[in-house]
Design a protein around this nucleic acid. Structure first.
Lengths: 349, 349
DNA sequence: TGTTAGCACTCCACAACAACGAGTGCTAAC
DNA sequence: GTTAGCACTCGTTGTTGTGGAGTGCTAACA
């Protein structure tokens, strides 16, 4: 439907208006378009067409006697139909950083930073989480007379530890038994599989050490219970200042706060992560975004998949007049660099 | 010396100027002081005294025919000699949060948040680190045929894990040997104690498994090697907007970036943490701060000590005209709430 | 000798005003 | 259907002037 609402000439004009506005951030007038395009039309003709486009809701006037700027609908049309999807080659720098940085959290922080430096927008990267997470391995070890160490590893290779206080050392044999008991009963289970029955059975078999079981189960719950503390790395929050339409201190302040309190950002992410089919790029224009403070922004996110089922999100937040082509290109590149990185690293060794 | 440079009357006037400026943020004139103080002096007299104070460098004039504002030297004098140290009772709320939040990282984030909400300045809290850190315990475990899990615990009870890929499962006996080998050679050692000799000896004894030793040593280095990734929690970075002298977008942008790239903040912290004697509160006024972007700010930090040797820092960054009394009061309260919390929690269990 | 009243002067903040120019809608001619 | 022309709108920018807060200095006073 939408596609046939605009004839070719209107489409070209709309395209020109948006591209021009993306560059300058200033309302664009009919004379500019008349010269900018290869349509060879006078400004008067363009004016007529622009009046139509405004009526149809693709562009709007900030005030009489100003040029036109794209509306949300206009941007949406641009993203869906006008924008070219370039496929430039992968930037050397990016891959380099990713392949040469050791720790995952540094990689992700770097990704956010590169993206922000490259695009001049605010960026966020969420640490990968493994959904439908299962216990892979549990290990209890005697640290000393008073403490034992519990380590839980999930199939996504997330690891958590807990130090559990005990009264008096537990002998090695008991320890082996406990380890066996835990692994035999819990391995391969997801959070929802561990029910009261399982717990009761475990405690019973643990006998006098059932208190330890409780602590271990706490750690298990923390480790495989997702969502509650997705790590989010951000960069370039101050880029909002670069765009006059976002830089008045109230708006900028709200936006930057949202970036500082990273929790809120998680809402941009969760739905994408759960949708198993989604491997592409999402664009939220203005009010399409779930976060209220971002109503004057556009948000573009990509989901990466480190390894089987281990997923995270890379995102960009900027003004509606963001350079969508560049942004999506960047996101794709980084997504590709991250995708399957676990497997790659494995091959190296 | 400094103390005797100012007679009682000048001191009172300086005090009045600063207090007034802290409240209003506007340059303060002679008439205001004449009424504000109980000195019963005319504005003309005050003017003469103010001229003297300016000559001595305690106050300055933004421009002719404006009132006076405190200089860095003035603030320093205020903090060192004029300020009253109140000791209000511990706010209920704060202790409540600390005692009822489970995970340490949430506690620290909460502390930052409370402090920011309470003071209207930007705040930071660093996670505790244990200095002169020593290896307490190392544990290798077989996860499956391809991977073993290395866990390193320090005396400060920091725990780190690493998954190490191997070719073919290692039998239990070998594993026990390796564990024994590692613990026998490394327990009780600090980073600087682990030299090439130790490493060579270890590798030799490990025989064909010496590759694993390298990986374990990497993990050890990461765990007890301090500084490199102190976790820093921040809150209220956008509070800078509340103070006109900091809120023009260039300054605010720099400051907020500094807060986003938390690494830089670490420099505020390291020296305090290493100084064993330091248990008090540090105040950096303007250029006294090691961070260049904060030359127009004051920084106040407090060092807390969770348990024997496990220390972190709470800090506040705001305009020079910050409410030093309130800030220091708040920091003390929080510091007290955090101090020795490990022992407290231990008693509970 | 220290304090104070008086006064001329400085300089910022703010409002009012004018000039400009980019852009529009409309009309009439091509 | 397209275009030139024109009157009109409205935000931006620069200028000007006024008011006020505050100063430094001088001279008188206790």
């Amino acid at each position: 439907m939408d596609e046939f609402e605009l004839d070719e000439r209107k489409t070209k004009i709309l395209d020109a208006i948006i591209r021009n506005y993306l560059e300058t951030g200033e309302p664009v007038g009919s004379r500019t378009i008349s010269k900018y395009t290869d349509l060879n039309l006078s400004s008067a003709t363009i004016r007529n067409e622009m009046a139509d486009l405004e009526e149809q809701g693709y562009i709007l006037q900030p005030h009489t006697s100003a040029g036109r700027i794209p509306s949300d609908k206009g941007y949406r049309f641009y993203v869906d139909h006008l924008m070219e999807e370039k496929n430039r080659e992968v930037s050397e720098m990016k891959s380099f950083v990713i392949e040469h940085t050791e720790k995952m959290d540094q990689v992700l922080q770097q990704v956010a930073k590169i993206l922000a430096a490259n695009t001049n927008y605010a960026t966020m990267v969420t640490a990968p989480t493994y959904h439908k997470n299962k216990v892979k391995f549990i290990q209890l070890s005697n640290m000393n007379e008073e403490q034992i160490l519990a380590t839980v590893v999930t199939e996504g290779n997330l690891v958590k530890n807990k130090i559990i206080p005990v009264n008096g050392e537990i002998d090695n044999e008991t320890m082996l038994k406990l380890n066996f008991l835990l692994n035999a009963n819990l391995n391969g289970l997801a959070l929802q599989d561990i029910n009261l029955g399982t717990i009761a059975k475990l405690k019973e078999q643990a006998g006098i050490h059932s208190a330890i079981i409780s602590d271990v189960l706490d750690t298990v719950a923390e480790t495989i219970g997702q969502e509650d503390d997705i790590r989010i790395y951000t960069s370039g929050a101050t880029n909002f200042f670069k765009y006059p339409e976002l830089s008045d201190s109230e708006k900028a302040s709200e936006l930057i706060s949202t970036f500082e309190e990273k929790q809120q950002l998680a809402s941009l992410v969760t739905e994408n992560l759960l949708d198993e089919e989604n491997t592409g790029i999402q664009v939220y224009i203005g009010n399409e975004s779930p976060i209220q403070t971002m109503r004057d922004c556009s948000v573009v996110t990509a989901t990466y998949e480190l390894g089987e089922g281990v997923r995270g999100t890379i995102g960009i937040v900027g003004p509606k007049r963001m350079d969508y082509e560049k942004v999506m290109d960047n996101l794709k590149t980084l997504k590709n660099s991250l995708d399957g990185i676990l497997d790659k690293k494995k091959e190296e060794t």
